[in-house]
Design a binder for these strands. Sequence first.
DNA 1: CGGTATCCAGGCAGATACTG
DNA 2: CAGTATCTGCCTGGATACCG
Lengths: 117, 117
Amino acid sequence: MVSHRLSSPDHTAATAAKGVEQAFRMLEGRWKLLILFHLFGGQLRRFSDLERALPDISQKMLIQQLRQMEGDGIVRRIVHHQVPPKVEYGLTDWGQALCPALDALLAWAERRPPLAD
Amino acid sequence: MVSHRLSSPDHTAATAAKGVEQAFRMLEGRWKLLILFHLFGGQLRRFSDLERALPDISQKMLIQQLRQMEGDGIVRRIVHHQVPPKVEYGLTDWGQALCPALDALLAWAERRPPLAD
DNA sequence: CGGTATCCAGGCAGATACTG
DNA sequence: CAGTATCTGCCTGGATACCG
């Protein structure tokens, strides 16, 4: 029986959920979305810039989240071999492509009707 | 290159992230997406139907995830006062509206290029 | 049938201190 | 500047047993 109106017809509930869960796992974590929204638009940000932009994050968490997103292919890391060291972070093309999808989710969240129970 | 920005101009990185995080929090949890994809399309499913559809879930987890989504206004619960008891679960209109947003995220996940490191 | 109640373990976030 | 290492506490999910 045809049920969930996904654009792609060849998904079961299980495969669709699995795909979305993959996406979720890459974006979960208290800081990843915040980092992402600071990088949308093609900007490059230094490690210390991001530290300042996210005042409550520890260095451990910042590098951890950046490395995970780099490993997932969302973030790219650009090392300038200088003294003192300089490292910039930006998005890959695929990472940039997240923007409209997150936008859709944001729009949905903001359409929430009052809970009229 | 056209920078990818949000459709709504009055978002900072912080407010946008906050909105999307709200959405994420409502959908996080090992079973919620799976439940959701079983309910997309306007179907009503009994508690025991869902239990059968998600063979590895415990009753505690099933009811917990359903209740949370009900509290968030995504799922609605329909109690039929009968003996034996019968309870059905479906989506609210707003819950249904999640489908295109998740579809976008699913499409993104499936566009992932090979990690050519 | 459709739930509650209770206990438990693992993972992840956070603080803090140290380093090339 | 841009990280690494270690310790700790909490929260979430899971197993199990019981109830209207």
